[in-house]
Design a protein around this nucleic acid. Structure first.
Length: 560
DNA sequence: GCCGTTTTCGGCCCGACTGTTTTCAGTCG
């Protein structure tokens, strides 16, 4: 039992307790314990052995006993009882927007609805209308939530799939009978969400099946042989088999995108079988086109004119400008976060704790802002010798009317201001756009944080009139954040080029709530590359002096 | 279920919105 597995079972227990209508604080205790176990920097089994579980904050005698049982038996008596008592499809219903524990219980007990399919049937045949508390709006909302769910269900985040896919590639490389392996498909193109793992293998089907016994042979396109199936957890895998002689061409076809390949073939003809993919572009007289650009968004034309962008790389980032600490809802102290950023080679680290109205995230009062700024000053005296600097920033809420959550004099005390929306996410395009535009006009705003509020595979963002937003960013010299949290990747990479074409800088921010989340910049850089971002157009690829100059200039230029 | 005590009980993050009601329960962030 790894920590992750124990945390998963604790969360399952929490869900089931919640559905049974248990004390919400008891439910939360299980959730917090799951969180604590996940954050533990040693195996939980070790703690069990030493009997030191109760030293972990949030774990008392009751939970320690539960956890010990989970570690030793892989389950617990209570969890088993709960699983028997409640149908297995019930927890999934909880994840639908509009359904909480009360309503799910009501659905189950009155109509016997115990799965997403049951719910859909009941919505369609009108049985839900008889139910108290389920009016036409909720009806509509649930149908919408179900259709989103259907779309999301087949997809996973790149951040979840890529590490697994890379591990699979390594296992295949070790396998006798396998000559060459590469990732292909949407994973190789670094799409933010993917619907399968694709690999190209030079080698025998038998060798691949040694590693992935669940794959079955299918005949594929372009005369190749495909092996198709799923990972043990059900996620689809496709392996294209080929020979070393044709490896490059098969890799090219299976990397796609379909549109890129189609446009290429129309202009340059179908590529001849060749061992190296690079040869395909060479023979067409083109420079190599990185896989993440192959989306048929003008990359072939740009290549023909030798105008492909010199894409940003992880090493180009000099610092990060939106991070949380224990001052608000982060899990590590300011000092720990800054230390970790420094150790990762960053030259600057900017805070971005929440502002006062976001109480649920322990947003900072004005007094706490002052205290944090004092601590930053003290820490900076210590960091100066290492050529590292903490910048004082805030993730200031954009209130529903577009005003900001701190008065001007407080905003002026920060080195920069990330302005973000966290409330009233359901506005229509006109209202949401006006709200953001008003915030952008505030002379203290330097960065628009996670501009659409989307959460990939969980929630759509609010709609915005993008030409007007980008125009306003250019006018008021506000940078756009590409929030690197793998669930956000907001702004969408498809809009990055419009922004940079208008001269609006992009900031790749980790939005880290803990030390390890600083590494989320990896996903932000991946998305930025898909959006053709160059280091020059990226604000936090600038050295500290350049950044400070930009911030200074920005404030000068728009002061009333 | 945890925690911290003014130490075995009461508070635990809470304000706003939504859709349903007809004064509020449930959900959300």
């Amino acid at each position: 039992m790894e920590n992750r597995d124990v945390a998963r079972l604790l969360r399952e227990t929490a869900r089931l307790l919640e559905l049974r209508g248990e004390n919400p604080f008891r439910v939360r205790a299980y959730e917090q314990a799951a969180e604590a176990i996940e954050q533990l920097d040693e195996p939980v089994a070790e703690r069990v052995r030493q009997g030191t579980l109760t030293e972990v904050p949030g774990i008392g005698r009751g939970l320690a006993a539960q956890i010990q049982e989970l570690v030793e038996r892989g389950t617990s008596e209570m969890l088993e009882r709960l699983r028997q008592e409640l149908p297995p499809g019930l927890p999934e219903l909880l994840t639908l927007k509009g359904l909480g524990p009360q309503r799910v219980r009501q659905l189950w007990q009155t109509l016997g609805i115990a799965s997403l399919d049951d719910l859909e049937d009941a919505l369609r045949d009108g049985r839900l209308n008889q139910l108290k508390g389920f009016g036409p709006r909720l009806h509509e909302q649930l149908l919408h939530a179900l259709s989103l769910r259907r779309r999301y269900r087949a997809l996973r985040l790149l951040a979840q799939v890529l590490p697994e896919a890379e591990a699979l590639r390594e296992r295949l490389r070790q396998q006798p009978g396998v000559i060459r392996v590469e990732l292909a498909g949407a994973v190789r193109r670094l799409m933010e969400v993917v619907d399968r793992v694709e690999l190209v293998v030079a080698g025998s089907a038998e060798a691949v099946q040694q590693v992935l016994p669940q794959l079955r042979q299918q005949s594929g396109l372009h005369g190749g042989m495909l092996l198709e199936g799923a990972l043990p957890d059900g996620f689809p895998v496709r392996v294209a088999l080929t020979t070393p002689d044709a490896f490059g061409t098969v890799l090219w076809w299976h990397t796609g995108s379909e549109a890129h390949c189609r446009t290429f073939v129309r202009t340059y003809g179908a590529p001849e079988p060749c061992p190296e993919e690079a040869t395909i572009y060479e023979q067409a007289g083109l420079p190599f086109i990185p896989a993440e650009l192959r989306e048929d968004r003008g990359e072939l034309e740009a290549a023909a004119h030798h105008a492909l962008p010199a894409l940003i790389e992880l090493e180009d980032l000099r610092g990060v400008l939106h991070n949380h600490s224990t001052y608000s809802d982060g899990r590590n102290s300011l000092r720990e976060m800054a230390e970790a950023a420094c150790n990762r080679g960053f030259r600057y680290f900017g805070t971005g704790d929440h502002s006062q109205s976001l109480t649920i995230a322990r947003g900072l009062s004005i007094a706490e802002v002052r205290r944090q700024q004092e601590e930053i000053q003290t820490l900076n005296e210590q960091f100066a010798a290492r050529g590292f600097r903490i910048l004082s920033g805030t993730e200031c809420d954009i209130l529903p009317d577009g005003s900001l959550d701190y008065p001007d004099d407080v905003l002026a005390s920060f080195d920069y201001v990330v302005a973000s929306v966290h409330t009233r996410l359901n506005m229509d395009e006109k209202t949401a756009t006006e709200r953001i535009l008003r915030a952008l006009r505030n002379p203290h705003v330097t960065i628009l944080g996670h501009p659409t509020g989307r959460l990939l595979l969980r929630r759509e963002g609010y709609p915005l009139d993008w030409p007007r937003i980008i125009d306003a960013c250019a006018t008021y010299r506000v940078a756009l954040e590409l929030n690197a949290n793998p669930y956000r990747l907001d702004i969408d990479w498809r809009r990055v080029r419009d922004a940079t074409a208008a001269g609006v800088p992009i900031v790749i921010n980790p939005d880290a709530h803990a030390i390890d989340e600083l590494d989320h910049v990896r996903w932000g850089v991946a998305a930025a590359r898909k959006g053709w971002l160059t280091p020059e157009a990226c604000l936090n690829a600038r050295d500290l002096d350049e950044l400070l100059a930009w911030l200074h200039q920005r404030r000068q230029s728009v002061q009333p």
